[in-house]
Design a binder for these strands. Structure first.
Lengths: 114, 114
DNA sequence: TTGATATTTCTAGAATCATGGAAACATCAT
DNA sequence: ATGATGTTTCCATGATTCTAGAAATATCAA
């Protein structure tokens, strides 16, 4: 992953509303959620939300698809995978032990359905 | 990890010079590097670099220690671990398969000494 | 076509962040 | 003390990002 893409992705998540929207879409994967519903759940005016969703799309973390008169946004799985991969590889440069979580990632996730 | 701390951390890394400095410090861990040397390696004026390093410190990703007349910055290992942990746990909410890299993290790192 | 609903684009103002010179501060040597 | 070196704080300027109302666009229903 290019470092400029990584910076895009980090910046995209480094904002309260965008992080919240992203979280909603993670939980709603792979179906996604229409823009309006996201806006009302986050209590953000539509133009503001649209601005933030566009930011996440630009960063490759989500994508959108028109569906009747609404637009459904959904997680783009590879986006976050690549971003996490960038961070861990970056950390690994010569020193794997420095920033990898103790256990394997998949194992950490076993109890996450709460 | 608090989401506000995560946002701090993401924002801290979402900048070219800061990400570069962070990378240097990852490689130089656990020894660290004096501020002046980081500045010259990145070709950034000292006041600007100082501003960025302070940002990374605030985010808990690095820390500093005076050493004679220079100040040595070093990776704070838990910082990046927590940040990566936040991202992966966030992704895992109910859907572990969505954003965990295929293999275990530690295994991904085996060939990273290049 | 007209109207209702969903979303985005336009726009301007506000807020935040980045930059780097000058000055201040800290440390050490003489 | 004085001076040299390394770093930070101060400050002003410029650049970017955020916000949300108003207007524009898209889709469907009657």
């Amino acid at each position: 992953m290019e470092t400029s893409s990584a910076i895009e992705g980090l910046a995209a998540l480094a904002h309260e509303s965008r992080l919240q929207a992203f979280r909603l879409l993670v939980r709603a994967a792979p179906n996604g959620i229409p823009a309006g519903e996201i806006a009302s759940q986050l209590d953000v005016p539509p133009p503001t939300l649209s601005f933030h969703l566009a930011h996440l799309v630009r960063a490759g973390l989500i994508d959108s698809q028109r569906e009747g008169r609404s637009v459904r946004y959904a997680l783009r799985v590879d986006g976050i995978r690549e971003l996490v991969g960038f961070l861990t590889e970056d950390c690994c440069q010569g020193r794997p032990e420095l920033c990898a979580p103790e256990g394997a990632l998949a194992q950490d996730c076993e109890g996450c359905d709460a």
